[in-house]
Design a protein around this nucleic acid. Structure first.
Lengths: 231, 231
DNA sequence: TTATCACGGATTGTTAACAAAATATGGCAA
DNA sequence: TTGCCATATTTTGTTAACAATCCGTGATAA
C-alpha cells in the first residue's frame, strides 16, 4: 500500500487545489516541489504530466507548470458535464445507499455547515466535495467517479475565480433534501434535485468582472503599478 | 503548431490502440519506445505517465508499462458512462450540425461499410470512432469530448478482448438513422437512437470465455504447455 | 523427471551534470 | 522619469551514467 513519490506529489497538489490553498494560476516550480517532497525532479516532472493529463495543471513549454485557470467557456462546459454525470450517478445511487452512507452524508452536511459558520473555507470546500464524491461511490461506477473527481477539482478552481460573495451558503438545505431522496429511493426526485443543485451552483458564478489572477507569491506583492490601488 | 516529442509518443500510441494494432496487455518498453521515436527515455516516461492518467496504460512498478486490459466490470462501467455522456452530447448536438458535418458523417458511414466489407478492421474501427467523436465536436463541449475520447479508446480495447465474431456489422444502419435524427433536429429520437446503439454494442460482448490475453511477441509464441492445443 | 536455487542479462528507477531558454536585474539614452 | 537593451541569474529541458529490480537460463538435488 506504499505510494510512489509521484503519487504523493499528485495527491498533495490535488488536495491543495480541492481546499483552495492553491489558487488558479499559481506557478508550480520544479525545484520548489522537489525540495518540498524531498525527491528528484524526474518524479516531479512525471507528477506534473499526470496532472496536466487531468487538465488540472497547464504545462507551458519552457515556462513551467501552472495551476489551470478555467475560462468562462470551460466553466460552462464543466458544469454541463457535471449535470450529465451526476444525474446518471444519482439514478444509479438511488436506493443503493447503506446505513453507513446515510450517516456519513448527514454528518458531512453538519460538518460543512459548521465550517461555513466558522468561516473555514478549506474545510467547507472539502466537505462539499466529499458529499458529491460519496454519492458517486454509492453509485459504484469507477469511471464516472473518476470523471467527477476531476470535475469537482476544476469546479473548485472556478469557484475561486468567479464565485460571488457568499453564494455557496444556499446549498446547505439542498444537500439535506438530496439525502432524503437518496434514502427514500425516489429516483426521479433525486435526479431532479441534483440537477437543480448544480444549476444553482452555476448560477452563483459571475463572469463579468475579470478573473483577478494572482500568479505567484512574489507577484502578489510586487504588482505592476498600473494594477495597484495605490496612486 | 509543433508538437513536443512527448505528445508525439502519446498520440502515436493512442492511434495504435484506436486501430487495434496494439492489443490489450502489450508491453510498452521504454527502450523500444525511445528507439522508435528517437528521443530520450525521460520523454517516454512522461508520455507513459500521461497515458496512465487516462487509464489507457497500466503502470506496474519495476515492471514497466502495459496497454490496459479492461475487466468485465470496467467494461460495464465504461459503457454505462458512454451512455450518460453520449446521450447528453446527442441532446446538445441535435439541430446544431452544419452541412459539412452531415456530409462528413454520411461519407464516414460509407467508409466504414467499405472497410468492413474489405475486412480492414483498423480502418473500420477508426471510422466508427470518428463517427462518435464528430458528433461530440458538434455538441461543442470540450470536456465531454475529451471524456468520450478516452472512453472510445478503452472501448476499442474491450472490443478486442470480448467481442463476439462479426457482431459489429449490425451498427451500420443505426449510424444512418442517427444522422437522420441529427439532421432533422428531433432531439428525443436522436437520444433514444444513440442510447440504443450503445446498448447494442455492449450486448455484442461475450465475457464467458477468458480474455485470451497475448502479452508480448515472445509470449505469443512460447505458450506454457497447458494452454497449448498441442498434446 | 521435476522442483528449487543461483547467476547473468535486460529493464526500470534514480541521480547528477550539462545545455537551452526565459525571467529578472541594472545601466543607458531619450 | 521613462523606455529600451545588454547581462546575470534562475528555471526548464536533455542527456548520460549508475543503482536496483526483475526475468530467463541453466545447474543441482530429490
Amino acid at each position: 500500500m506504499k505510494d510512489s513519490p509521484e503519487d504523493l506529489i499528485v495527491n498533495a497538489i490535488l488536495d491543495a487545489i480541492a481546499e483552495q490553498r492553491l489558487p488558479a494560476g499559481t506557478k508550480l516550480g520544479e525545484q520548489a516541489l522537489s525540495d518540498l517532497f524531498a525527491c528528484n525532479r524526474a518524479n516531479v516532472r512525471r507528477a506534473l504530466a499526470s496532472l496536466a493529463a487531468q487538465q488540472v495543471v497547464e504545462l507551458r513549454p519552457n515556462r513551467g507548470a501552472f495551476v489551470m485557470t478555467p475560462s468562462p467557456k470551460e466553466a460552462r462546459d464543466i458544469f454541463q458535464a457535471r449535470r450529465a454525470i451526476e444525474s446518471t450517478i444519482a439514478r444509479h445511487a438511488a436506493g443503493q445507499a447503506s446505513a453507513g452512507d446515510i450517516t456519513f452524508l448527514r454528518d458531512n452536511i453538519i460538518e460543512e455547515a459548521q465550517a461555513h459558520k466558522a468561516g473555514d473555507k478549506p474545510a467547507e470546500l472539502r466537505a462539499s466535495r466529499q458529499f458529491h464524491m460519496r454519492i458517486a461511490q454509492i453509485a459504484g461506477n469507477l469511471v464516472l467517479e473518476r470523471f467527477l473527481s476531476e470535475l469537482t477539482m476544476r469546479s473548485t478552481l472556478i469557484l475561486g475565480l468567479y464565485s460571488r460573495t457568499g453564494s455557496s451558503s444556499c446549498a446547505e438545505d439542498e444537500h439535506d433534501r438530496i439525502v432524503d431522496a437518496l434514502q427514500n429511493g425516489s429516483v426521479d426526485e433525486l435526479v431532479r434535485l441534483v440537477d437543480e443543485h448544480l444549476r444553482h451552483l452555476e448560477k452563483g458564478l459571475n463572469f463579468e468582472e475579470p478573473p483577478a489572477a494572482p500568479m505567484s507569491l512574489k507577484e502578489q506583492l510586487m504588482v505592476p503599478r498600473s494594477a495597484s490601488s495605490q496612486g
